[in-house]
Design a protein around this nucleic acid. Structure first.
Length: 259
DNA sequence: TTGATTGTTACCGG
DNA sequence: TCCGGTAACAATCA
């Protein structure tokens, strides 16, 4: 769930739903009490995504900063309001819908300076038209770290999560253990463009789909991916190897993806 | 009840 | 400075 596409989709949806919404705060465990006092009742003007970070901007120049982390959930409900499901941290109420946010790892109010600091540390977002991919390539080409780590490092480039990492590199025949400095500009462009294409599909379908022509109707993402958590390469039929990159599981076809 | 998980950050040591 | 490892945290589901 907390992949870049979900965040961008949320930003798009919420922009429509929450125009001039008011912010209400459920804080059953007291985790958001300070934000509650500052923003409660304020009007939300815009919603914007930077990678996996969401910014709900308010009229008083403050922003509600949300990051869903691994387990966060955003649920949209038609009005009238329903009982909060689980530990709802924030409830945004528009004219037709309400949005409940459960379990974000970040849920804080930022001032202008805090917003600038946040945006500054996030790399170019593969889904934003105002992104400059050159910044990502510069960092990659100077690094010895494996490309599998670099494309998921949100300070290098933003939006790619653990599933997309393995999928994109497989689709572009790039071995995840290739050092960043060995990645050519052309290969980088392929990765960037594929990330943009796949995440665009993700935003539209609200599902991680990396298999061409796969339908979103299947229940589990595993049926819509090529090698993530799979045993066999769909292309050459050899075994998919599972290994760790910085503590996250990664998958590779050592036959199709050469270093 | 237990373990796994689409993520990030802080901290430490080499 | 860079790199890699570890722990902590979050909520839900199988």
């Amino acid at each position: 769930m907390p992949e870049g596409h979900t965040i961008h989709r949320a930003a798009r949806d919420h922009r429509r739903i929450l125009a001039k919404c008011k912010l209400d705060v459920e804080s059953p465990q007291g985790r958001f009490s300070r934000g509650a006092s500052i923003l409660s009742g304020q009007l939300c003007l815009t919603v914007e995504a930077f990678g996996k970070h969401l910014l709900y901007r308010f009229g008083n120049k403050l922003a509600l900063h949300i990051h869903l982390g691994l387990f966060g959930r955003i649920r949209k409900h038609k009005l009238p309001l329903q009982e909060p499901r689980g530990a709802v941290r924030v409830r945004l109420i528009g004219k037709t819908h309400a949005v409940d946010i459960n379990g974000p790892t970040i849920c804080q109010v930022l001032d202008v300076k805090g917003i600038a600091t946040l945006i500054n540390k996030i790399g170019p977002d593969v889904l934003r038209s105002d992104s400059n991919p050159d910044l990502a390539f510069e960092k990659i080409t100077k690094s010895n770290a494996p490309i599998g780590h670099l494309i998921m490092d949100q300070s290098v480039m933003a939006g790619i999560g653990n599933i997309y990492r393995s999928e994109i590199l497989w689709r572009q025949s790039v071995h995840p253990e290739t050092p960043g400095r060995e990645i050519s500009r052309q290969t980088f462009n392929q990765i960037w463009n594929d990330a943009n294409a796949l995440l665009t599909i993700g935003v539209k379908q609200n599902a991680i789909i990396t298999v061409d022509e796969a339908q979103p109707s299947k229940k589990r993402y595993k049926e819509r991916v090529n090698i993530f958590a799979k045993k066999q390469c769909p292309s050459c039929k050899s075994e998919i190897r599972r290994f760790d990159i910085r503590g996250r599981r990664a998958f590779v076809c050592d036959t199709c993806q050469r270093i």
